[in-house]
Amino acid sequence: MIEFGFDKLALIGAVALIVIGPEKLPRVARTVGHLIGKAQRYVADVKAEVNRSIELEELKKMKTQFEEAARDVETSVQHEIREAQTDFDRNWSEATAGLDASSSLSAPLSTPVPEYKRPKKNWRLKRGAVPTWYKQRHGVRTHSQSGAARVARFRPPRAR
C-alpha cells in the first residue's frame, strides 16, 4: 500500500490549496474524507466476507470428518454387538443343552409379582401443612370466595 509521510501530506495539501482554492478546500476535503471512509468500509466488508467463506469451508470439512468418524464408531459398535450376541447365543445354547425340557417347566424360576393396589387415600382432597383449627383460630381464609359474595356476607342486615 502507498505510504504517506508527513512531508507528502503537506505537499499534497499545498497543491490542493493552490489548485482548488481556500473557499472550496474544506468541502472538497470533507468529500474526500467521506469517499475514503466508504472505500475503507467496503474493503473491510470484502475482507469479512472472504474470512466467513473460508471459515465456512473449514467448518464443512470438519463436519465431514466428524460424520466419517461417527460412521466408523457406529460400524465398530455394531460389529462388537454382533460378536457379543453370537458369543452369548453360543454360551446359552451350551448351558441349556444339558437341561431336560420337563424339569425346566415344572420348577418356577421366579416368584410372581403381586398386583398393584391403589392406596386408600382420597387424592383429590387437598391437604395443607397447617391444621384447620389453627387457621380458624387466626382467621385464615380456607375457602375462596368472590368479591360479591364476600360483600353480601359482611353486609349489615337491613333495618325495616
Results as ranks from 00 to 15, higher is better:
20 I>P: 00
20 I>R: 00
20 I>W: 01
20 I>M: 03
21 G>V: 04
22 P>F: 00
23 E>G: 06
24 K>I: 02
25 L>A: 02
25 L>V: 02
25 L>C: 01
26 P>F: 03
30 R>C: 04
30 R>W: 03
30 R>L: 07
31 T>L: 12
34 H>I: 14
34 H>G: 06
36 I>M: 06
37 G>E: 05
38 K>T: 07
41 R>H: 02
41 R>W: 00
42 Y>Q: 09
42 Y>N: 06
43 V>Y: 03
43 V>K: 03
44 A>P: 01
44 A>G: 11
44 A>D: 14
46 V>T: 05
48 A>W: 00
49 E>P: 01
49 E>L: 08
49 E>S: 09
51 N>D: 06
52 R>V: 03
53 S>Y: 04
53 S>D: 07
54 I>V: 08
54 I>D: 02
54 I>W: 00
55 E>K: 02
55 E>S: 05
56 L>V: 00
56 L>A: 03
56 L>Y: 01
57 E>G: 04
57 E>A: 05
57 E>I: 01
59 L>T: 02
59 L>K: 03
60 K>V: 04
62 M>Q: 12
63 K>Q: 06
64 T>L: 11
64 T>W: 03
67 E>T: 12
67 E>Y: 13
67 E>V: 13
67 E>H: 10
67 E>Q: 14
68 E>H: 12
68 E>G: 15
69 A>C: 08
71 R>H: 08
72 D>P: 01
74 E>S: 09
74 E>V: 04
75 T>L: 09
76 S>I: 11
77 V>K: 04
77 V>W: 02
78 Q>C: 06
78 Q>Y: 06
78 Q>K: 06
79 H>D: 11
83 E>A: 14
85 Q>N: 12
85 Q>K: 08
87 D>S: 13
88 F>H: 10
88 F>G: 13
89 D>S: 07
89 D>Q: 10
90 R>C: 11
91 N>L: 15
91 N>C: 13
91 N>Q: 13
92 W>G: 10
92 W>D: 14
93 S>H: 15
94 E>A: 09
94 E>K: 11
95 A>L: 14
95 A>G: 11
95 A>H: 12
96 T>N: 11
96 T>E: 15
99 L>Q: 10
101 A>W: 04
101 A>K: 08
101 A>P: 02
101 A>V: 08
102 S>I: 10
102 S>C: 07
102 S>Y: 07
103 S>N: 12
103 S>E: 13
104 S>V: 13
106 S>R: 08
106 S>H: 04
107 A>D: 09
107 A>Y: 07
108 P>D: 07
110 S>P: 02
111 T>E: 08
111 T>I: 10
111 T>A: 09
111 T>F: 09
113 V>M: 11
114 P>T: 05
114 P>C: 05
114 P>M: 04
115 E>L: 09
115 E>T: 09
116 Y>N: 07
116 Y>W: 14
117 K>W: 10
117 K>D: 12
117 K>C: 11
119 P>E: 14
120 K>H: 12
120 K>Y: 07
121 K>Q: 09
123 W>A: 15
124 R>A: 15
125 L>K: 15
126 K>R: 14
127 R>P: 00
128 G>H: 03
128 G>N: 02
129 A>Y: 08
129 A>E: 11
